[in-house]
Amino acid sequence: MSQQQSLFEKIGGEAAVNAAVDIFYRKVLSDDRISSFFEGVDMDKQAAKQKSFLTMAFGGPHNYTGLDMRLGHAHLVERGLNDSHVDAVIEDLGATLRELNVAEDLIAQVAAIAESTRNDVLCR
């Protein structure tokens, strides 16, 4: 009788995104490996971007395309964005979910979705 729950529902839907966005953004800003990429950006606009990224990574509704990812990160790739930085973001994402007591198997699924954007983010 139970319908299969989606990943997004299992994590907690939009409420989970709202709970995660501040924690995730704070981790990213205090992560010395990647924080320099966020210097001087408008924090409100950045938080909105983080929110749509998290929604997508949590398996929720989104309008992201590979092209968006490329356009959005091209200027950062020029500044040296590489695999190690993507690794750092995915790590911070996992730590955020652990802080929110999300189960490890769900965290692995989120990490896999984030991982699937790697080549677009790095424009290759």
């Binding site: 966005v21 704070r26 800003l29 924090m43 409100d44």
Partner: peptide, 12 residues
């Protein structure tokens, strides 16, 4: 102050 406030726990 905006960045400091956020890092000190205030929500965006």
């Amino acid at each position: 102050a905006k960045k400091k406030a956020f890092m000190a726990g205030a929500s965006m």
